[in-house]
């Protein structure tokens, strides 16, 4: 037996790399030297590879998708965010994005590291269904898109502050244009919303096959629904009356706070059927 398990090693290494990336990202906000974004990207990529290895090892050892407790859930959540972050960087090359996204990843990873890490050998029979994988992966991908949207929303609000207040120093030069931030925020919500919708639908179907009822007003179900409504509202208001810019950015941040509460708060504070997640 190794003194430290391989998957734990992978996890700790990924966490460390995300940590360094966060530090560099935050310093990059204040120090106006050369672009730090390349080093953040490299760290995130290496961290991501190790993180993937961690999840793969857990999958092989446990024989099921490793999203069965809060440790695994938070870890998978941040993994999804890193996937989207890398894709977004590849597609748009947004300066300073890492400075706003890596802290979210880090906080999720740190909280993940604080929950018990055991790989449950005997899975709750309810989870032995292919709906389990589809439902959870869809949910976390949607949540990751909302996390990105919130990060972009924060960037928007900061940049908007600069332009409105007419004090154009500090981050003004480095942050992207308001329009691009607003559009990317919108695209991310348009991506997250159908994912969340599908997650809820698959959840409902799965609930019916597992418990014989579609909807039981379990706290997680309720809070997911509230989150869904918020994002539905964001999209609806944008398309009808043009709620864009500051309001959209603000709502996307509120939406993400709800996502986080639905994920952690419901599990830790309110007991329900989803307690095993």
């Amino acid at each position: 037996m190794l003194p430290i398990k391989t998957e734990t090693l992978f996890f700790e290494l990924a966490l460390t790399l995300y940590f360094i990336a966060t530090i560099i990202g935050v310093i990059g906000l204040f120090k106006g030297k050369k672009d730090t974004f390349k080093s953040i990207l490299v760290l995130a990529i290496i961290g991501f590879i190790l993180h993937t290895a961690n999840i793969a090892v857990r999958y092989i050892e446990g024989g099921h998708i490793p999203i069965t407790n809060l440790h695994e859930g938070a870890s998978f959540f941040s993994w999804c965010i890193v996937v989207l972050f890398l894709l977004l960087e590849y597609r748009y090359k947004i300066r300073l994005l890492g400075s706003f996204i890596m802290p979210i990843v880090l906080v999720l990873m740190l909280s993940s590291s604080m929950f018990p890490r055991g790989i449950s050998p005997s899975l709750n029979p309810v989870l032995k269904s292919y709906w389990f994988g589809i439902h959870t992966i869809l949910a976390f991908l949607g949540d990751a898109a909302f996390a990105m949207a919130a990060g972009i929303g924060v960037m928007y609000l900061i940049q908007e502050r600069y332009v409105k207040s007419k004090r154009l120093s500090g981050l003004f030069q480095k942050l992207p244009s308001l329009q691009s931030l607003d559009e990317i925020n919108y695209r991310l919500i348009s991506l997250g919303f159908p994912l969340l919708t599908l997650a809820i639908i698959t959840g409902v179907i799965w609930a019916n096959t597992a418990w014989g009822t579609y909807w039981r007003w379990d706290p997680k179900e309720v809070w997911s629904l509230i989150t869904w409504l918020i994002y539905a509202l964001v999209l609806h208001l944008r398309l009808t009356v043009g709620w864009r810019g500051k309001k959209a950015a603000g709502l996307s941040i509120i939406g993400f706070i709800l996502v986080i509460f639905t994920f952690f708060g419901v599990n830790l504070l309110l007991k329900g059927l989803h307690a095993f997640v």
């Binding site: 940049q159 332009v163 154009l168 992207p176 244009s177 308001l178 691009s180 559009e183």
Partner: peptide, 9 residues
């Protein structure tokens, strides 16, 4: 410069 920070293109 300001226009470019408000609009992307």
């Amino acid at each position: 410069e300001l226009a470019k920070k408000i609009f992307e293109d």
